[in-house]
């Protein structure tokens, strides 16, 4: 299924070059956003807050902040990557090339995920300027970051194929993912919520993802790491399933 390595490399490098053209914006945006969050949540509000589950509040929000940006960046980069050729018409070349669907997927999602991991790392580094963050399980943390980037890039890929306008491209990340992440415990622990709201929150799938990532930092989360990993696996499988179906049927790619 994978034999056209040169083809994968061509698309991967093309996509990375596209990111490269907006390198400074891509780099500065997460740095500035992170700094702003730390000024507001870390210093202004955080100084009046106690520790959350024995973790200083400033450090506590780091994993949530990384996930919040990585989710939205992954989706928008990946969806844009596959939507643009559809929009400009250059998709004809990918479809007529000796590339398997899996190869196309690896190239586009690989490039978008690379960018997400870079951005996540930049946020992590920036956070160190403001707070002292210790990572309990560095390898797991890195693995989780890559897994999240890949999963949400797959999700973005689906949106990019589904979307038929730039508006549709924006709808899901802005109106669904951003609020779900914000309400998914990016900046607070579920323990801080009243019991009724906590139950409602447990229906938010993003809770399990953020909780799992926080576990790799502090060895504790809102839910057990096993539950988090299952949620990640489920989401990943779901995305792969949808993409498999899209490629099989040629959904919005081929007539």
């Amino acid at each position: 299924m994978i034999s056209n390595i040169r083809g994968i490399r061509a698309i991967y490098l093309f996509e990375m070059a596209r990111f490269g053209r907006t390198f400074w914006t891509s780099l500065m945006l997460p740095v500035i956003t992170t700094a702003l969050y730390f000024v507001v949540f870390g210093s202004a509000i955080g100084s009046r807050m106690n520790e959350v589950s024995n973790v200083p509040y400033g450090a506590f929000i780091v994993p949530g902040l990384m996930m919040l940006t990585m989710f939205t960046e992954s989706i928008s980069n990946s969806s844009f990557g596959i939507y643009m050729p559809k929009w400009t018409g250059t998709i004809y070349e990918m479809l007529s090339a000796p590339m398997s669907p899996l190869e196309l997927l690896i190239a586009y999602v690989g490039a978008a995920a690379t960018k997400s991991v870079i951005i996540g790392s930049i946020i992590f580094a920036t956070a160190h300027l403001f707070v002292d963050v210790q990572v309990a399980h560095p390898l797991l943390m890195a693995a989780f970051m890559v897994l999240m980037a890949v999963t949400f890039c797959l999700f973005g890929f689906i949106i990019g194929i589904w979307a038929q306008s730039f508006e549709q491209l924006q709808v899901i990340p802005m109106l669904v993912i951003y609020p779900l992440t914000f309400l998914g415990g990016a900046f607070y622990s579920l323990d801080m919520l009243p019991a009724a709201w906590r139950t409602v929150t447990l229906f938010n799938p993003v809770v399990y993802l953020i909780s799992g990532f926080r576990w790799t930092f502090f060895g504790q989360g809102d839910v057990g790491i096993g539950v988090s990993m299952s949620a990640v696996a489920l989401f990943l499988a779901l995305c792969l399933g949808v993409i498999f179906w899209m490629f099989r049927t040629g959904y919005r790619l081929k007539n």
């Binding site: 390595i5 083809g7 061509a10 090339a97 000796p98």
Partner: peptide
């Protein structure tokens, strides 16, 4: 870049 890209896409060195 675009012409070299096409060559790569079709798997040629």
């Amino acid at each position: 870049a675009t012409v070299s890209f096409s060559r790569g896409l079709f798997g040629k060195p």
